[in-house]
């Protein structure tokens, strides 16, 4: 109010808005490239990801082999491109599993009658006591390593954190002044939940979903890296890393490059997610 005028702030924000989001363009471009790799890998490479060529084994990156070759002479670039068709669906699937679980648990905790809500609260608390990776490992121990169990393991692992967020968002919206204003106007509770609470609380989840795809790909590749997910002959990115481990002193690019791809995916997802987030925060109001 009158006491604390901070004109500098508004100007800075305006300046930031005026700047072109180059980072976003790069991130979106990369995401499109990945989609192409997942859907039509032949557009990006003419080689076969499992074609063996022992004489050309363990070559450093060059013009013929952009990312080098592995111990059986397979072209790493081609394998990374083909890996997208495995890694992306796993990441996407895990993100969906995680968010759906989070929505169910989080909204029950926040909206259900008191005692049910409290019980789900406790359940979330218990789940949160298990770190994501350990929860995932617990599930994999039971179901055995496979792509499907990876999807559910990572989804289950990341769900508690998102569920807490969903719960917090809904509780905040429940306490918002506009909800009380709607109550005072005589609107029914179910209408208020439908019209005000859920839309306002769940809007940020769009951004969170984008972020969680990146995170899920990182987690899933970590599991494969440990040999607890998709197994090595597959070009899945974590499996590529796992396969490259024995050669770390000889051909570090076999580890560094697939890892870099995962990092790039995660950064791209984060960039897109954060952009969505700030768009949603400003909302259509701006």
């Amino acid at each position: 109010m009158t006491a604390l005028e901070a004109p500098g702030q508004t100007l800075n924000a305006a300046a930031l808005l005026a700047r072109r989001p180059w980072g976003l363009y790069v991130a979106v471009g990369f995401a499109v490239l990945l989609l192409v790799a997942a859907v039509a890998p032949h557009l990006l490479t003419s080689r076969d990801p499992s074609a063996l060529d022992y004489p050309a084994a363990l070559q450093a990156p060059s013009l013929t082999h952009w990312f080098g070759t592995d111990e059986s002479g397979r072209d790493l670039y081609t394998r990374v491109v083909f890996g997208a068709a495995i890694s992306l669906p796993i990441g996407l699937g895990a993100a969906v599993v995680g968010i759906v679980l989070a929505l169910l648990l989080g909204s029950t905790a926040a909206l259900a009658p008191r005692f049910i809500g409290a019980a789900v609260d406790r359940l979330l608390e218990v789940m949160f006591a298990f770190p994501a990776l350990l929860l995932a490992l617990l599930l994999i121990t039971v179901s055995g390593p496979s792509a499907i169990s990876e999807v559910f393991a990572v989804g289950l692992g990341t769900a508690p954190g998102y569920a807490r967020m969903v719960r917090g968002q809904i509780k905040a919206a429940k306490g918002a002044a506009y909800v009380e204003a709607a109550t005072a106007l005589g609107h029914s509770r179910s209408r208020i939940v439908r019209v005000h609470i859920l839309p306002n609380a769940l809007r940020p989840l769009v951004a969170v979903f984008a972020l969680s795809i990146g995170q899920s790909i990182v987690w899933a590749s970590s599991l494969s890296f440990l040999g607890l997910g998709v197994a090595p002959p597959s070009p899945e990115w974590g499996a590529l890393l796992d396969a490259g481990r024995s050669y770390i002193t000889v051909t570090p690019w076999l580890l560094v490059i697939p890892g870099l791809v995962v990092v790039a995916v995660s950064i791209a997802a984060t960039t897109i997610g954060r952009h969505l987030q700030s768009r949603l925060e400003r909302g259509d109001r701006a």
């Binding site: 990146g214 995170q215 990182v218 590749s221 970590s222 890296f225 890393l241 770390i248 570090p252 580890l255 560094v256 890892g259 870099l260 995962v262 990092v263 995660s266 950064i267 984060t270």
Partner: peptide, 13 residues
């Protein structure tokens, strides 16, 4: 968002 395995390998290298 850096995966531990990648960062670890990088630091190791």
């Amino acid at each position: 968002g850096l995966p531990a395995y990648w960062l670890g390998i990088l630091l190791l290298l």
